[in-house]
């Protein structure tokens, strides 16, 4: 099976950093030195022993807000990814196995949704929808499920024409066996790698929306929104806005490193046991 020493350094780095962020997000109230929305000092104080990352545009502790922000950002992105993944992969697999009119209708619908850039479509829809977290998750999840659908369908279509699937059909196996025992084990690796990429996309997308003022609304903290709150400081040489922006980048890069490693393992078709 999977041994620890087989994991390359880059994947280790990605796993550790991702784990750190997730830990901070889950235990935010315990880890954060100050409450989320409490004003504890002057506006844009520099980094100090009391405030490791300084204070923000209203004098709140930046580190604490970063930690609570991790919570919001990761939670929303994770839920949106879960939604897009479930929706996209179930529909994609079903379309590939059933084929016919169902496949046609679904695929053309997805083509149509993908003909509009995701951000633009989200902006159009958000102009009429109420601005809350549920709306955000639904909009992000549904729009992104188009990409998961395409991948899941393509992978399943490829596998569905393999001789071993044909052999299973000739044996008389039911649709359940074919989807769960023949197709799914072979589709899993690319889909898991895609899961990482979709999560990164969700983080970046949410941050962009919040940065534009259309995502998470204050006083709730999320990283994109914190960039927006502190951006005025940049012209005065105060780098507070760069810290949440960098956090987004670091999280995205670490997840990417992990996804990249999983994707590379996909080529190995020996049941994941290495070279025998």
């Amino acid at each position: 099976m999977l041994t620890l020493k087989n994991i390359p350094l880059s994947a280790w780095l990605g796993l550790i950093v991702t784990g750190l962020f997730v830990f901070a997000a889950v235990f935010a109230p315990l880890v954060a030195p100050f409450p989320n929305a409490e004003i504890v000092g002057d506006v844009w104080e520099p980094m100090s022993a009391a405030h490791w990352l300084g204070t923000d545009n209203l004098g709140r502790d930046l580190l604490s807000r970063m930690i609570f922000g991790a919570r919001t950002t990761i939670l929303i992105a994770a839920l949106a990814t879960a939604l897009s993944f479930t929706l996209g992969s179930i529909l994609g697999f079903t379309a590939a196995v059933i084929g016919g009119w169902f496949d046609q209708t679904m695929s053309r619908g997805v083509d149509l949704l993908m003909a509009i850039p995701t951000l633009i479509f989200a902006l159009v829809v958000l102009s009429v929808l109420p601005g809350n977290i549920v709306t955000l998750i639904l909009v992000m999840g549904i729009l992104d499920s188009t990409r998961v659908y395409r991948l899941a369908r393509a992978v399943a279509v490829d596998i569905n024409v393999m001789d071993y699937v044909e052999a299973a059909k000739l044996r008389g196996e039911g649709r359940g066996w074919i989807i769960f025992r023949e197709i799914l084990p072979n589709a899993l690796s690319p889909l898991v790698a895609e899961l990482g990429l979709r999560f990164i996309f969700a983080v970046l997308f949410l941050s962009a929306l919040s940065f534009l003022g259309l995502g998470v609304q204050p006083p709730e903290a999320d990283w994109g929104g914190m960039v927006k709150e502190n951006k005025e400081g940049i012209v005065f040489g105060i780098p507070a806005a760069l810290i949440p922006a960098a956090a987004i980048a670091v999280l995205a890069i670490s997840v990417n490193l992990v996804a990249d490693w999983i994707l590379n393992r996909t080529t190995d078709l020996k049941g994941g046991r290495g070279n025998g």
Binding site: I200, L204, S207, A208, F211, G224, V227, K231, I234, V235, F236, G237, P239, A241, L242, A245, A246, I248, A249, A252, I253, N256, L257, D260
Partner: peptide, 30 residues
């Protein structure tokens, strides 16, 4: 490439503003 597809646009943008526009003052920030 791996790094750059992970960077949000505003991170790159504000980095440029912070260093090139504010610190070095080569170009306007707005």
């Amino acid at each position: 490439t791996l790094a750059s597809i992970s960077l949000p646009e505003f991170f790159i943008g504000y980095l440029l503003i912070y260093f090139v526009a504010v610190q070095m003052q080569w170009f306007p920030s707005v």
